Amino acid sequence: MKFAADRPGDPFARAETLFSAILSQGARLPSQRRFKARAETRANGIPLTDAEMSGLKHLLAQGLDAV
């Protein structure tokens, strides 16, 4: 890695140490919330309101051309 060429040690290990320190203070890393939401959606599906379900059922009844 060119950005770490003159520094001793493993730059990935240093980054992981930094990330662990940030997380231990209660801060979030960029994209952390998005990845958590993605995992929850995969496990539990996408919650929809009754109105959203009704709208989807209406579109289904109209056929794909209605979309």
Rank of each mutant, 00 (worst) to 15 (best):
D65M: 08
G9P: 00
Q25P: 00
F35H: 14
A27G: 04
T41V: 11
R28G: 05
V67W: 04
D6R: 09
L48D: 04
L48V: 10
D65R: 12
F3D: 13
S20H: 10
A27L: 12
I46C: 06
Q25S: 05
N44G: 14
H58G: 01
A66C: 02
S54R: 15
R28K: 09
A13L: 12
A27N: 12
A13V: 14
L56P: 00
S24R: 14
L29R: 03
L29P: 00
H58A: 12
S54H: 14
M1V: 11
A37C: 09
P47N: 10
R28A: 07
A51Y: 00
F3V: 10
A37K: 10
F3C: 10
L56I: 14
Q62S: 13
A4W: 08
F12H: 11
A51P: 01
E52C: 00
P8K: 03
M53I: 15
L18H: 10
D6G: 09
L64I: 11
L29N: 05
A43Q: 15
F12I: 14
M1C: 08
S31A: 14
D6T: 13
P47G: 07
E40C: 03
I46S: 06
L60M: 14
E16N: 13
G45I: 01
K2T: 11
M1S: 09
V67M: 10
T41N: 05
R28M: 11
T41D: 00
A43P: 05
L64Q: 08
L23T: 05
A37R: 15
A5P: 01
G9R: 02
T41M: 07
D65V: 11
G45P: 00
L23C: 05
Q32S: 07
Q32W: 02
A5G: 07
L64R: 04
F3I: 10
F19D: 08
L59M: 15
T41F: 01
N44I: 05
Q25T: 10
T17A: 15
A21I: 10
D6W: 08
G45F: 00
L23I: 10
Q32G: 02
S20G: 10
A51S: 04
K2Y: 09
A66L: 02
M1L: 12
K57L: 07
L18D: 11
K2G: 14
L60I: 15
D65Y: 06
F19C: 07
A13Q: 12
A51W: 00
A21W: 10
E40A: 13
G9D: 03
R33F: 02
E40I: 03
A4Q: 05
A27K: 08
A5M: 12
A21T: 08
A51T: 01
R38F: 09
I22C: 03
G9I: 03
R14Y: 11
Q32Y: 04
G55L: 03
T41R: 15
T41G: 02
D10P: 03
